[in-house]
Amino acid sequence: MHGDRRREEHRHGTHLDGGGRHRAAVDTEQQDARGEWLRFAPVQPLFRALAAQRLAVLAYHGVTDHRSFGAQLDRLQRLATPVSLGAVLQAVTERRPLPPRSVLVTFDDADRSVLTHALPALDARGIPATAFVISELIGTERPFWWHEADFLARHGGRARSLDCGHPSQLLRRLKAMPDPDRRRSLHELRVSADRRPPRQEQLTPADLLALRDGGVAIGNHTQGHPCLGRCDDDTVRAEITGAHEALTRWLGEPPIAFAYPDGGHDVRAETVLQELGYRLGFLSDHRLGPRLPSHPLQISRLQVDSTTSTRRFDTILSGLEPAYRRWRRQAVA
């Protein structure tokens, strides 16, 4: 149950308790049950064969269940060919496809568990990875803004733009706001709440070097993780360049890869990335991509979590579960 709660916090930016925690557990059980069924679907072998000629980029957040995560890595070693960020860059540079069944492991937000839980598991198996960093949190004890907003709202925090609707819709409403309105609402929540959120230890510059030395490449995930589509042009540029400059200072070299906050492509962001010399950009569209990325700044990724069952993990890796989810959305629409 605790793992389900943390999984939902990482993916959706919410803190769940009471009925919310129950709904998260039910949702997880339903997803894993679907994975169990899909794994034995007649089309799964076909999808697995097709996936051999595709690139699977796995998008994790934190690692809340190290045993399950280790089992997933073991599956990768048996079923796939783990590759590094450098290998993907080399394929793009040389215009040469990656090997069949190539998989790149990535992490968004750089939760501290990437260092404490993911790195030992990856290192033990010789699997490389990439972590995309929110630069303004490095070296601080500040929580992610979506965790902070939920905590403040549950402890008396109020904001003019958030006075209506169910509390479960808080994050969705904040993300839908123009960025200045989101920041103003967060400020109002901080001022009006009767408690401050608990501190959350974040990675330090030294931790970033330890990750890189351990085979985890470091990429840019903006300064503060805004929804870029809700930002004006100047904010888009500042969010990317500010993080770029900080990471270059800490690492001694400029990052070459970027992950779009919330996973959606932004044309203005891509322009800034090209100006700064970025070679790779990653979405979170829950799709497989070509072994030779046709749009290196728009590489697809599959959404996965450390608590995902191994059977559902197989259907995600094959592309069957993502295809089923897209079909379901179209059928409902």
Rank of each mutant, 00 (worst) to 15 (best):
D4Q: 13
D4F: 15
R5Q: 13
R5I: 14
R5E: 13
E9F: 09
H12R: 15
T14Y: 09
T14R: 15
H15A: 09
G18F: 10
D27Y: 12
D27H: 14
E29G: 12
D32G: 02
A33D: 10
R34D: 11
F40P: 00
F40I: 04
P42L: 07
Q44F: 15
L46P: 07
F47N: 01
A49S: 14
A51Y: 12
Q53M: 06
Q53H: 14
Q53S: 06
R54F: 06
V57S: 02
A59S: 04
A59F: 06
Y60N: 04
Y60R: 04
G62S: 05
V63D: 06
D65I: 03
R67E: 14
S68M: 10
S68W: 07
F69N: 01
D74W: 09
T81N: 13
P82V: 12
S84N: 10
L85M: 14
V88K: 11
R96N: 09
P100R: 07
R101W: 10
R101D: 14
R101N: 15
L104A: 05
T106E: 11
A110N: 00
A110C: 01
R112M: 10
S113Y: 09
A118W: 04
D123Q: 15
V133D: 02
G139A: 00
H147W: 13
H147V: 11
E148P: 11
E148C: 13
D150T: 14
A153N: 04
G156V: 10
R158I: 09
A159R: 04
A159Q: 03
R160N: 13
C164Q: 15
C164V: 12
H166D: 15
S168M: 00
L170C: 06
R172S: 15
K175P: 08
P178T: 01
P178Q: 12
P178Y: 13
R182M: 15
R183H: 08
R184Y: 00
L186P: 05
E188M: 04
L189T: 05
S192C: 02
S192I: 01
S192Y: 00
A193I: 09
R199N: 08
Q200M: 14
Q202D: 07
T204Q: 12
L208K: 00
L211R: 04
G214W: 02
G214H: 01
I218S: 05
N220T: 08
T222D: 12
G224T: 14
H225L: 05
P226Y: 08
L228H: 05
V236P: 10
A238D: 15
I240N: 10
I240F: 10
G242A: 06
G242N: 10
G242T: 06
A243E: 08
P254H: 05
P255D: 03
P255Q: 00
P255M: 03
I256N: 03
I256R: 07
G263K: 03
D266P: 01
R268F: 06
E270D: 07
T271V: 12
E275N: 09
Y278T: 01
G281L: 07
F282P: 02
F282C: 01
S284L: 12
G289M: 04
P293E: 05
P296S: 04
L297H: 05
L297M: 05
S300D: 11
S300P: 06
Q303L: 13
D305I: 03
S306I: 07
R312A: 04
D314V: 00
T315E: 05
T315G: 00
I316W: 08
E321A: 13
A331W: 11
V332C: 07
A333C: 02
